[in-house]
Design a protein around this nucleic acid. Structure first.
Lengths: 218, 218
DNA sequence: AAATATTTTTAGACTAATCTAAAAATATAT
DNA sequence: ATATATTTTTAGATTAGTCTAAAAATATTT
């Protein structure tokens, strides 16, 4: 049996290692889990004993195939619940995360398979992140970040990096959502801000916004 | 903050005291929770400190108004999730309980209010048990148990007492569901078995079945 | 009403997950 | 390459929930 806490550690390690690095270090996990390094050491020992992680003292940790399977399954559940909350229960995209954090730990294969079917097998969650299928395969989408988009080209908004409530509310108030068509008008070299055209407006967004918005060329 | 375990104890005490008795004794809780009496003593002390229960040593325990409010809210969530599982996710009535036991502990007012609306404010769960509204009010239905029904009268099946998988599967295989019309044909004094007529069949049910099936005269 | 049985509580121990503080290992700087 | 800083681990304690075994209270029997 795997505990809720173990699942959350595995998920954290998965996300930390998917950002490039091969092994994940203790302090990074501690800060992601909002806990102390000593607690992390205890937990990664346990995950290692249970064969969810490979770990050598002072050398950081990686997930085993078993550990990755657990992580992807939790991500699948999290994102399916997010789709449910937005499409069926009128949640906005900045409200879903917290509740999905709890729902993702409910253990029932039938529940998640039926939910998947009920939602008609969605492949992306409300933030544009891909939903892995039952076998754990992600649908890859070629996307670039607004900060690296070409002036003069037109794109479709396909996702966000930062899913914090503040950022999502900012996008809402500027009428940017998944699917929104965006044309890049101008890049300001001084502060890397970018002027973009939407359907009925032109706005200037800061570099921090531009780094967190994913686009696909159309 | 109330823990998952505390919620489960409160629910158990609520059910035990709703079957007539005023105070609930330690052993009854222990057997309902599948734990030991000593663990129960510890927990009811804690519930008492947190003002969810009134407790005097050796005298059993009762829920406070706060405790009852917690219990009814969990029951509301449990039954709404059961409706969701049966109506939207193709669960059968004998499969819902276990998953609902977990879903009932998810804490989000918006989630449960929206779920209620999505299901169009159901008043009964898949076993015929009433779903309390937001204020905790149950819709009362006048029902009798098949064992006490009159020979010759016709009834509608409105609920079950025992919700175990075995009993519900028995009912399924005999084509008895909520809403099924039943006419009582004969009571056998020797073993208290009862012959009933359904739409297309006549069957004899044992006393244990007759004690667990709720009917409403029509 | 005394003896016996049952129920409930207490005392002390265990596990999972956490913490602080100190020690050990590794990394960085001069 | 030695000293310093940082990271990681260990040691020992804490809390929630559980357990066993023994003690205390209550209930039942004769």
């Amino acid at each position: 049996m795997i505990t809720l806490t173990e699942e959350n550690y595995i998920k954290a390690i998965y996300y930390l290692s998917s950002n490039g690095e091969k092994t994940v270090n203790t302090n990074a996990i501690a800060s992601a889990m909002q806990t102390k390094a000593s607690s992390v050491t205890d937990m990664i020992k346990k995950l290692s004993e249970k064969n969810y992680a490979d770990y050598k003292k002072y050398q950081g940790v990686t997930l085993t195939d078993d550990g990755k399977r657990v992580a992807v399954n939790i991500i699948r559940k999290h994102r399916l619940w997010e789709v449910f909350l937005v499409e069926k229960l009128n949640f906005s995209w900045d409200e879903v995360h917290e509740v999905a954090e709890h729902l993702e730990h409910i253990k029932s294969d039938k529940l998640i398979d039926e939910l998947d079917a009920f939602l008609e097998f969605p492949t992306y969650d409300p933030h544009g992140d891909p939903i892995p299928d039952k076998e754990g395969n992600f649908k890859h989408i070629e996307k670039i970040v607004l900060a690296k988009a070409e002036v003069g080209s037109t794109y479709k908004c396909v996702g966000v990096d930062d899913t914090s409530s503040n950022f999502l509310k900012y996008l809402d108030s500027n009428h940017i959502a998944l699917g929104t068509i965006i044309t890049v008008k101008h890049k300001e070299p001084f502060d890397n801000s970018i002027k973009i055209a939407l359907e009925n407006s032109e706005i200037v967004v800061s570099q921090s916004v531009a780094k967190n918005l994913y686009l696909k060329k159309i």
